[in-house]
Write a protein that binds this DNA or RNA. Structure first.
Length: 356
DNA sequence: TTGGAATGGACAA
DNA sequence: TGTCCCTTCCAAT
């Protein structure tokens, strides 16, 4: 899934590519026809990410929103990608935009590729699926309007400007909401590590007053917004915390450190488009020497070259989907178990529950 | 061709 | 806790 970092990246992309532009909004699939009609012909004034939800603010041309954030004089499109939602972009030669952002697809390792119609050699991954990209031939000398590609699959919403198009498939939520409703959603959510206005103490307090397992609380969007199954597993490993420890038994200073870690990890994910939580010295096949396994390892920026795919996926995580493989730090087999219907991964040694 | 699984969540009991 | 929904992709038939 698109965890919070993906949604922030999307909001940024929408602001850059469609901000200030008059757009045609339609629903090729038909299920969102009524909502699309409410937005068609308006200007995209704002794109906000709150946890895993994205809000696109529309209004008339020339309008200046009264406030930062979810301004009360815009009409908002609320989108939650859920487990498989995805946005696919295409643009003319004047606009550079990531090809697709959203649910990961196994075979297409690099979902985010530059799709510039005038530079077809930049279009990546034809080897796996030549039908997937089909760049439109476009002669830069010719002054004809750009011709957007046909929608692929069940496209719930299409947003089309003069220079770019964005297609939404498979969202869990997609609706036009009032400013009040948008703000109500934001108020219900816990603090979002990727938002500058977030209050970490709300997170600490919410965990500390609960008897639920900390591994459950991290997935609860009312406790912390934007964390999903990967960040949950990885941040617990990096904090050397057992997922089953009741929230009230996790020391506040440990929770503050976990928050700070989430801020670093998720900002890195938002910048590069890929989740990488392994420290460079823990990558590769081998374990590192035993004397380096002490707690208190320094925190470093993860994706040092800031390039999506710079770290191969099989070296990106400590425990997520590594069950049965040796822990990168202590060589214990990584464990897996279902927790509230989702797979949980952890190292039984590094994340031992010391209370018993 | 079919059927799990996938980085999610709403709702019922 | 379980069930359902949204869509895509790939491994297993």
């Amino acid at each position: 899934m698109p965890e919070g970092h993906t949604v922030h990246r999307l909001a940024r992309t929408f602001g850059e590519v469609f901000g200030g532009a008059t757009v045609e909004v339609s629903s090729p699939q038909g299920r969102f026809a009524a909502g699309a009609a409410l937005l068609d012909g308006l200007v995209l004034h704002s794109a906000e990410a709150v946890g895993k939800q994205m809000f696109l603010g529309f209004g008339p041309a020339g309008h200046v929103p009264t406030a930062e954030g979810l301004a009360d004089d815009l009409r908002w499109l609320r989108v939650h990608l859920g487990l498989y939602g995805s946005w696919t972009f295409a643009a003319d030669a004047s606009t550079q935009v990531a090809h697709a952002i959203g649910a990961p697809r196994k075979r297409v390792g690099e979902r985010e590729t530059v799709l510039a119609a005038a530079v077809p050699e930049l279009v990546v991954a034809p080897a796996t699926d030549p039908e997937d990209h089909e760049p439109h031939q476009h002669d830069p000398d010719e002054d004809s309007p750009w011709d957007p590609p046909d929608p692929r699959g069940a496209v719930r919403v299409r947003i089309l400007s003069e220079h770019a198009v964005a297609d939404l498939t498979g969202p869990t939520a997609c609706e036009v909401v009032s400013p009040d409703a948008a703000l109500a959603v934001q108020r219900r959510l816990g603090p979002d590590p990727l938002r500058g206005d977030a209050d970490p103490e709300r997170f600490v307090a919410a965990v500390r007053r609960s008897r639920s397992a900390v591994g459950l609380l991290l997935m609860n969007q009312d406790v912390v917004a934007g964390v999903g199954n990967i960040y949950r597993a990885e941040v617990l490993f990096r904090a050397e915390q057992s997922p089953t420890t009741p929230g009230r038994d996790v020391p506040a200073e440990v929770l503050r450190a976990m928050w700070d870690d989430l801020v670093v990890l998720m900002a890195d994910g938002a910048a590069t488009g890929a989740i990488v939580t392994t420290r460079p010295e823990d990558r590769g096949d081998g374990a590192r020497p035993a004397d380096e396994t002490a707690p208190g390892r320094r925190r470093v920026r993860q994706n040092t070259d800031a390039e999506p795919g710079a770290v191969p996926r099989d070296e990106s995580f400590y425990v997520y989907q590594r069950d049965g493989q040796p822990c990168r730090v202590c060589r214990t087999e990584v464990a897996r178990a279902a927790m509230a219907g989702r797979n949980l991964f952890w190292c039984p040694t590094c994340q031992r529950d010391d209370r018993r």
